[in-house]
Computed example of a mutant assay.
Amino acid sequence: MTKRDYFAEIQELRIRNPERKGSFDAMLYRLEPLQKVTNDLLKKRKLSSNDLELLRYVPVGAIACIEGYYKGLVRDLIDFGSPYRENIVNLREIKPTLEGLVGLHGGKATLGEFVSHFVGISNVEDIERYMSAILGTEFLKDLKTQTGLAEKVFSGVSRAFELRHIVVHELAPKARATAQQASEYVMWAFFLLMATERYLQGVLEHEESGA
């Protein structure tokens, strides 16, 4: 089996994303068209077979936005510096190899890029695990407390994760959201990421003020 070259994969990511936008801006670039598509489908009196097939992939796109956003946050928080850089020791499953250390020393990737490359987000629990580790907090608990984010947002996002998994890994021809559900999945994703952005702005402002 050919050994993976993680730094080559990171370079490919840089090529696919030539402008290192903030995670929130990059997420909006993907999420806004999804919202427009679902809104257009909601206006139709009757959906075509193509429309129904398109609905299968709305959760896939919404979850891609969520995963990309949080992986970008992990990267950016680590590259921001202390205390987040030091908190990577909380990610016990990520173990640097000698090749990895040599690559980092040679400037092939930032520490944030390297660590976030191993972050996989398959459910809400993964968001909690990675963000809590990097921030050194109980992330979702703090997020709910600070922003008032409703429990139905997490339930909706969890269902989107489930549908995404089914669509990507199974044939399941009848597994699809309704136009209303698809619109809600996009909305829940936006609410979650918007709340996270507001929460982190407060955290980083607190760090920079030295309070």
Rank of each mutant, 00 (worst) to 15 (best):
L77T: 03
R56L: 06
E113I: 15
S82A: 01
Y57K: 09
P83T: 02
L52W: 14
Y84P: 07
N90R: 14
P83A: 00
E67C: 07
R85K: 10
E86Q: 14
A64E: 13
R56W: 09
A64P: 05
N90G: 05
R92G: 12
Y69N: 01
D51E: 11
R56K: 13
L73F: 09
D79S: 01
Y84S: 05
L104Q: 01
P96C: 11
T97V: 14
E53I: 15
G107L: 02
Y69I: 07
L73M: 10
S48M: 04
D76G: 07
V102Y: 10
L52Q: 15
E86A: 12
L73I: 14
L55M: 09
V58W: 03
S49M: 13
V60L: 11
K108D: 08
G112W: 00
E99T: 14
R75H: 06
F118W: 09
E67T: 10
R85G: 03
V74P: 09
Y84F: 15
I66A: 15
Y57S: 13
E53K: 15
R92T: 13
L55R: 02
T97C: 10
D51R: 02
L111V: 12
S48G: 13
G107H: 08
F118M: 04
F114H: 01
I78M: 04
H117D: 04
G81E: 03
G112D: 03
P83I: 05
I94Q: 05
E93V: 12
P59N: 12
G81A: 06
V115Q: 01
L111T: 12
L73Q: 14
I94H: 05
L54T: 15
E99C: 10
L98I: 13
Y70I: 02
R85Q: 13
E93R: 14
N90W: 03
L91G: 12
H105V: 07
L47T: 15
K71A: 06
V60Y: 06
L73W: 04
V58G: 02
Y84N: 07
E93W: 10
E67M: 13
K71P: 01
S49W: 03
